Amino acid sequence: MPKPELTVWYNTRCPVCDAGIGRQKRRLIEAVKAGRIAFRDINPEPQALAGYGASLEDVRRRLHATDADGRLLVGADVAIAVWATTPGEGWLAALFGNPAIRPLTRLAYDRFADLLYAWNRRKGRW
């Protein structure tokens, strides 16, 4: 099987993250089956992104992904890459990934991710 074009690392212990990735997996079923995109739970592989300087807590806080060239994507950039791959969601990637809008997309994603991370910690979802 070829190396995935995008490998998304996420936290299955976060119900919001797990549901969102579950939705994307269903929308991308053919790409997942073909091995073009992979979704991986960081919890059983906490050191998976250590070579990039990303810790388990970093991935629990924000989505991380690696592309086919081995580059690390973080946060909103992961969401944009997934939207660009998802049938019917390319417009989201074009809108929120637009160079003029992307800084605001990153800011909004980061604030939401911070709130979600704090909520998960309060609920004991490590």
Results as ranks from 00 to 15, higher is better:
Pro2Thr: 00
Pro2Leu: 02
Pro2Phe: 00
Pro2Arg: 06
Glu5Arg: 00
Thr7His: 01
Val8Lys: 10
Trp9Gln: 01
Trp9Glu: 03
Tyr10Cys: 09
Asn11Trp: 10
Asn11Ser: 13
Asn11Leu: 09
Arg13Gln: 14
Cys14Val: 02
Pro15Ala: 11
Pro15Tyr: 07
Cys17Met: 15
Ala19Thr: 08
Ile21Glu: 09
Arg26Met: 08
Arg27His: 10
Arg27Gln: 09
Leu28Thr: 01
Ile29Ser: 13
Ile29Asn: 06
Ile29Thr: 08
Glu30Met: 04
Glu30Ala: 11
Ala31Glu: 13
Ala31Ile: 01
Val32Arg: 03
Ala34Thr: 02
Ala34Phe: 01
Gly35Phe: 12
Gly35Val: 05
Arg36Gln: 15
Phe39Tyr: 10
Phe39Ala: 04
Ile42His: 10
Ile42Ala: 10
Glu45Pro: 01
Gln47Leu: 12
Ala50His: 14
Gly51Val: 12
Ala54Gly: 04
Ala54Val: 15
Ser55Leu: 14
Leu56Gly: 11
Leu56Lys: 08
Glu57Arg: 12
Asp58Ser: 05
Val59Glu: 07
Arg60Ile: 02
Arg60Ala: 02
His64Trp: 03
Ala65Lys: 07
Ala65Pro: 08
Asp67Glu: 14
Ala68Gly: 11
Ala68Asn: 10
Asp69Cys: 12
Asp69Thr: 13
Arg71Gln: 13
Arg71Asn: 15
Leu73Gly: 11
Leu73His: 15
Gly75Gln: 06
Ala76Phe: 02
Val78Gln: 02
Ile80Gly: 03
Trp83Asp: 01
Pro87Phe: 05
Pro87Glu: 05
Gly90Pro: 07
Gly90Ser: 00
Leu92Cys: 05
Ala94Ile: 04
Ala94Gly: 09
Ala94Pro: 07
Phe96Pro: 04
Gly97Arg: 03
Gly97Asp: 02
Asn98Gly: 09
Asn98Pro: 07
Ile101Gln: 02
Pro103Gly: 08
Leu104Lys: 09
Arg106Glu: 11
Tyr109Arg: 08
Asp110Ile: 00
Asp110Lys: 01
Ala113Val: 03
Asp114Met: 07
Leu115Ala: 08
Leu116Phe: 00
Tyr117Thr: 01
Tyr117Ile: 01
Tyr117Pro: 01
Ala118Pro: 01
Trp119Ala: 13
Asn120Ser: 10
Asn120Met: 13
Arg121Glu: 07
Arg122Asp: 10
Lys123Ala: 12
Lys123Asp: 06
Gly124Asn: 06
Arg125Thr: 02
Arg125Trp: 15
Trp126Asp: 15
Trp126Ile: 14
